[in-house]
Write a protein that binds this DNA or RNA. Structure first.
Lengths: 143, 143
DNA sequence: TTAAGTGCAAAATCTTTGCAAATGT
DNA sequence: ACATTTGCAAAGATTTTGCACTTAA
């Protein structure tokens, strides 16, 4: 699917500034989620740290980006599938957090339904697998 | 199962200090994971903030405690089941993070096996359900 | 006795807030 | 023109580091 930052901003009635467009462009470059520190490194020259915080927050609130916390408590961001909305994030797919390169992948694997104990009402589910990703597996074999 | 802080420390050849014992006691009080800020609040008079950081890190490294990150990137701690070791945490049960009281429960629900895409080797799995816990559900009904 | 652990001070980060200047509609 | 957004400065919070003093083995 093609990502068009300008359209996304229009759809959510957000003003389109060059900073907001850049953030979406950068995150859309990869299907892999990107961490906030990585984003800062890449955009630091163009966008102020504080502005980045604010843009990411707005995008998450609006359901444009999807935030995944990694094992260190660092925020990682990926573009939400179109079914996400301001009311509810549909994150029912499995994430894969590579322990070698620390990238987070959004896998095309659905989280199976699980029965909750009596009294517990689950609204959403987040499943993360930790291990070695495709690329890092290849690197190991090559050496 | 009965938790004996002194024995746990011995088993992992850690010196037993009153601070280390207190941390284990406090965490063992509940099956629910406790957040680091909550621990600070409860133990702040007895244990220095920095010491708490250091003790929690050691406990996680040794496989004594099990760290669960909540949606805010805050660390929560629970006693590991006996099968955890320094080499590997067995966290294959489902966590339940209450969006109302923000407690994290370790549920007696096992994460179903999921097939990873080709090239991805999962070593461990972390599944967290978000929703309303038993206690908060009851509170709503009462009012 | 002596290696390890603790507390305090301080540095390094990370995150939020306030406000004047710049920008988009 | 006017409401929003941005960047900078600064406050607040979290986490790490260094070192002298204390404690457990």
């Amino acid at each position: 699917m093609k990502i068009n930052p300008v359209n996304i901003l229009k759809e959510h009635s957000l003003k389109h500034t060059k900073q907001r467009v850049r953030v979406l462009e950068e995150i859309a470059l990869d299907t892999v989620a990107i961490s906030q520190p990585e984003l800062e490194k890449k955009l630091g020259k163009e966008i102020d740290r504080v502005t980045l915080y604010r843009i990411l927050n707005i995008y998450e609130d609006k359901g444009i980006l999807h935030r995944i916390m990694d094992m260190n408590g660092t925020a990682n961001y990926a573009i939400c599938s179109s079914s996400c909305s301001e009311e509810h994030h549909h994150d029912e797919h499995v994430h894969f957090n590579c322990t070698s390169c620390s990238k987070i992948y959004c896998l095309d694997v659905t989280v199976p339904k699980m029965v909750m104990p009596h009294g517990f009402k689950a609204v959403s589910m987040n499943t993360t697998a930790y291990g070695i990703c495709e690329k890092c597996n290849l690197l190991v074999k090559e050496n």
